[in-house]
């Protein structure tokens, strides 16, 4: 800031000095000519008296630069002394700034995800989340809008209101590419997940209905783009590689598009696994086909000419 200010001051100073010198030159010339000196001779005399104009300008500029430099050093010393004199005040100020900046950054990150990135899928405005209407009947996993997998399958069959219906549930799996297994964010999804969302693969293929038929029969996974980049070094031959999910061997069949980070804000899955493989992905989970075990969120894509109100009835 100070530097910019000085730069402006320096320019003003140069203009100022030129004006000042010009006044001197003009007055001196007039006086010399008045005393009978011819103009060329007067001009020569004035130039001689003043010495080199450039040198003069530099000399004056150095005087001021030197001053500003001293001021700056003085300010610096003063601040350092103030900081040392009241460490508690300094700590408070620094902490306030840190918290303020942190909070602002956090908020911006959130807004960035919610507003700017929205859902990176086709016609996100036509996606709806299914919810129960009526009394709670069975045990849930804490959220009201959870459904069982068979309900999801039933809803996938109907074609009256929806172009597509899919369901998904977040899970954390032990994921290994051959080395040390790591806890990895996964999402168990129905075979309709990617096609309904309109996500395209960056590599290989995505999950389809064929991957989500008989429980336990389709050991395949799809990687998120970032996970593929970070854990697989963006290897072109990642498709076809064997990985371990909770000690169950599965095959990588594809990588999702780079822009797709799942449908939950802030929860970014690294791998997608067919819901049919839930018994392998969630240890001890054997009740996938039980209608009363509600563990998945069901979402649907409304048909073009169907309003939300119509679908609700």
């Amino acid at each position: 800031m100070k530097r910019i200010l000085n730069w402006f001051r320096l320019r003003r100073l140069a203009g100022d000095l030129d004006r000042e010198l010009q006044y001197h030159i003009d007055r001196r010339m007039a006086d010399l000519i008045h005393s009978g000196l011819p103009e060329p001779e007067a001009r020569r005399r004035v130039a001689l008296e003043l010495g080199g104009a450039t040198q003069l300008r530099e000399e004056v500029r150095d005087i001021w630069l030197n001053r500003w430099l001293q001021d700056f050093v003085h300010d610096l010393r003063f601040s350092a002394r103030s900081i040392l004199r009241s460490p508690s005040f300094t700590a408070t100020a620094v902490l306030s700034l840190a918290l303020g900046i942190g909070a602002t950054t956090a908020l911006y990150s959130l807004i960035d995800q919610i507003v700017l990135r929205a859902l990176p899928v086709d016609h996100a405005e036509r996606l709806v989340l299914f919810d129960w209407n009526g009394e709670q009947l069975a045990e849930t996993f804490g959220s009201d809008n959870l459904m069982s997998y068979p309900i999801c399958r039933d809803l996938q069959q109907q074609k009256q209101f929806f172009d597509g219906v899919f369901c998904c549930a977040a899970a954390t799996v032990n994921f290994s590419t051959g080395g040390e297994p790591r806890l990895t964010a996964a999402e168990l999804v129905s075979g309709t997940y990617f096609s309904t969302l309109g996500v395209s693969p960056a590599l290989g293929r995505l999950l389809t209905m064929d991957d989500d038929q008989v429980p336990g029969s389709s050991p395949v996974v799809v990687l998120s783009y970032d996970f593929w980049k970070n854990q697989f070094g963006a290897a072109q031959d990642a498709v076809g590689r064997k990985v371990l999910v909770n000690q169950h061997a599965m095959t990588v069949v594809g990588v999702a598009a780079a822009t797709f980070h799942g449908i939950d804000v802030g929860e970014v899955p690294s791998v997608w696994i067919p819901a049919a493989m839930s018994a392998q992905s969630i240890p001890g989970f054997e009740t996938m086909l039980d209608r009363r075990t509600r563990w998945m969120q069901i979402l649907g894509r409304l048909k073009q000419n169907v309003s939300l109100a119509e679908a609700k009835t």
């Binding site: 000095l17 001197h24 008296e49 010495g51 003069l56 000399e59 004056v60 005087i63 001053r67």
Partner: peptide, 15 residues
């Protein structure tokens, strides 16, 4: 008095 030294002196005193 070299007039070339007058102006730097003025600015020095002003500074």
């Amino acid at each position: 008095v070299n007039q070339g030294s007058l102006y730097p002196a003025l600015h020095r005193l002003e500074q």
